[in-house]
Nucleic acid binder design. Sequence first.
DNA 1: CGCCGACTTGACACCAATCAAGATAAGTGG
DNA 2: CCACTTATCTTGATTGGTGTCAAGTCGGCG
Lengths: 252, 252
Amino acid sequence: MRTLHDNPKPTGPVIRARSFLEARERVPKIYNVLTPEEQTQLRRIAVIEEFRATGTAIFAEGEKAHFLYILDKGLVRIYSHTERGGRQILAFMLPGDFFGLAEEGRYVNSADTINAATVYRIPTRDLRRLMLREPQLPFHLLVKAVHDLRAAQRQLLVLGQHDVLRRLVSFLADLCQHEDFFDADRQVLRIPMNRFDIADYLGTSTESIARAFGKLERDKIIKRSSPRRIELLQLEQLARLAHGRPPSNTED
Amino acid sequence: MRTLHDNPKPTGPVIRARSFLEARERVPKIYNVLTPEEQTQLRRIAVIEEFRATGTAIFAEGEKAHFLYILDKGLVRIYSHTERGGRQILAFMLPGDFFGLAEEGRYVNSADTINAATVYRIPTRDLRRLMLREPQLPFHLLVKAVHDLRAAQRQLLVLGQHDVLRRLVSFLADLCQHEDFFDADRQVLRIPMNRFDIADYLGTSTESIARAFGKLERDKIIKRSSPRRIELLQLEQLARLAHGRPPSNTED
DNA sequence: CGCCGACTTGACACCAATCAAGATAAGTGG
DNA sequence: CCACTTATCTTGATTGGTGTCAAGTCGGCG
């Protein structure tokens, strides 16, 4: 219900209890903002592309951008490189997300698969034509773009203000929004990417991620049944960690 | 060592020599993506609002969002709060930028003036109507939103991968894109906001910003004629700092 | 000219990056 | 199915960057 800080004043945030699972609102999948007609039209001009191997490049920064992509199945990472070899993952794409942001005709970041994945590949040329025929389409794409902008802004807050532990908790909260990963009944979360990807998404190192997981487990907030499969023991504690101060037993 | 990413890296990032001044492409002002007709129509439904004092709230996170704003004159900061009192500045708005991002009818972040500023205040209700009459308008707003998304992604890279010194250099590069602030002939940059705002934008503290300025000056890369007015002595050095490794005399 | 807020600098503690090594999980071929 | 191989993950030790506290300087405005 998103009642979050409706504080009208720029000073002093209103601290309000939010549940862990409401920490993030769900970004709508593209097919939730498109009309059925738009979806069929899009499919008509799209080519389905399948990727078997993990870590396959879909496109890379600087390449000429002839296509917009919509993810159908699987998991894709969008990232940029630093000149010194650093990699910043900007977002993970889930089924229904679209990507292939370009500027001056070239992709501004890279995308490759984390899982086996299948995508709809839409020629930008045809897309432009379609937008003329379907006058609502640009508006619906705008809605999606604005949501992505929001997501990026949230991540700016996380990277700019949170320490590694809190970044990880925030990330876990995001994952929990997707029932593909989170089994709400058993409170078990399946983490679909490796520590490297998490680290590069959160602007830190795999070791720091491992340590943060370790601390969460020592504090009995989670339990790792395997590195990629964790049980969330105390959602309230997690929520407090994500939003506010460590509530209690902050480890000796 | 970070060799373990399963990044296919068939096409590493196309590293292209870029000068300091080309470090960032210019985000188009809103009136550069709108047709003259759209601009007049927008002005018809807009109310001009003037803010004399600095630090005045335009709107705050959580308030009901009835308006979209376009900045006409001055400088505005967009930010979010952490539950613990931290503030993350998400973007600085310059004349021609628009802001007032909402979700479920409420602003998702806060905006207030840094300078005296004047804004166009556009009722969202009227805007929606206008979008029906001007079918191109949603597309043009999409173009602007995508640019903002790009800017946010660049900032994610900066916050996630760069140390404080590089963050500051990157920020100075951004400022240099605007001739209101940068006198290209004299190589003098006027910094329009205080250290607090810079720090909260770069996810650090005023002290660290001051230290970074100090280091740049000791290395004879800049010269502070006043805290808000600096001379850029060596653009090449700055560029190398922004993109790659500290080129030489990294201070003992 | 004098005050006050903005800015800078120093000292210190702490978080996190890095290097190094070991443990676990996953994949492969016999 | 098991042994082997390799990638992934975790943990420890060390170092460096940066947040924090404290004090001092500077600059702009009345």
